[in-house]
Design a binder for these strands. Sequence first.
DNA 1: TCATAATTGATACAAACGTATGAATCATTC
DNA 2: GAATGATTCATACGTTTGTATCAATTATGA
Lengths: 201, 201
Amino acid sequence: MSTRDKLLEAAARMFAEHGYDGTSVRDIIKEADANLGAVTYHFGTKEALFSESLGQKLGPLLELGKRIEESQASAMEKLDMVLRGYAMFVLHENPNLKAMFMESMQGGDRLPPGSVQMIQWRNKVIGDIVKQGINEGVFRKCNTKELGMMILGLISPYVQDLPIIKPKYRNTPVPKREVNRIIDAAMDMLLNGLKVRGEGK
Amino acid sequence: MSTRDKLLEAAARMFAEHGYDGTSVRDIIKEADANLGAVTYHFGTKEALFSESLGQKLGPLLELGKRIEESQASAMEKLDMVLRGYAMFVLHENPNLKAMFMESMQGGDRLPPGSVQMIQWRNKVIGDIVKQGINEGVFRKCNTKELGMMILGLISPYVQDLPIIKPKYRNTPVPKREVNRIIDAAMDMLLNGLKVRGEGK
DNA sequence: TCATAATTGATACAAACGTATGAATCATTC
DNA sequence: GAATGATTCATACGTTTGTATCAATTATGA
């Protein structure tokens, strides 16, 4: 593994754990067993290293969406695929992407180019899928992108709150079985609704 | 307004904008038009200032939940109240609480005491309300707290992605009308489901 | 094998960081 | 109005920060 790759890997991990500002270049090189000069040499600045460490994951995520979008599956199947695929990607395969979500809360100025478009596109894909067969009332209130955003939100507590509620997942990927269970519940809820009765108690 | 209060207010704003590590004590005192010594005098450390600036909001949020929990409304009405109330509190009235969510993604070690309990309790309240009249399938897959967590997730993209997608809301409260629109859609979706048809296209 | 390029290493630097300190100023009380 | 306590101020300290530098080392190709 090249020094460059070791740096990228360590950076992604550290940034996800402690955020951009909470991670120093020295923390990273220590973790990567590299030298300060290597960062200057390979990336120039800390921000470039950050951006590149995240940018690596952007392509695969876009591909995932495109593959699903173009598949022949039904709207419901597509919705399942995209939700499950996305959750698996973010919670199980690439937990370091948490750094991207942290960053987006601060405006995303340091994110790699294309991130904003990726997020918007991601929301649109989901919205479009859902629109193919939908409870029309929802669309009277919010547009395609917004609906996609909201649906993806079902997963975000697992990025946001899980580190607190189940500390063992703080810096560990969520197991596949767990992700599947979560998405099963989310899909059930999404498709069938909660059917809360009008009566209390 | 006392120096102490000015510091708390400025701190909450800055921490929400740039996170804990991205905000220096000097940034805060500049914004509060105060002196470095004032921080040492009133709070001792940066972390204590951070914790207290968030802790202020914890009480009111807990009260909100308790009021709804104890009300006589039906389960559906309660669900609406808690979702709308929570969204209004976080997105409209106290957008600075974003700092708490940022922090929780990093494990929450610096959060004020009681934060973790608040989050868990918050999830349980929603889960319990929903449980009063519910699509049973969902509960076969996930427990009360988890369901509450997921439902609240519908809102979190508005904390997480909105700063990116609609930059005008980066450091501005989301207007009431907007929050209401969002919750209307979320409630519709939650109660009735998406009703996605089995057929693609 | 030798010259050339690519990479790594030790070290330096100015700026920014959190915190501490003690004098100066303000408010309050008698 | 003098004395006492609360607060503010300018300033300083020791670290840590991101980045730069350039000699030392390693890899590459003729």
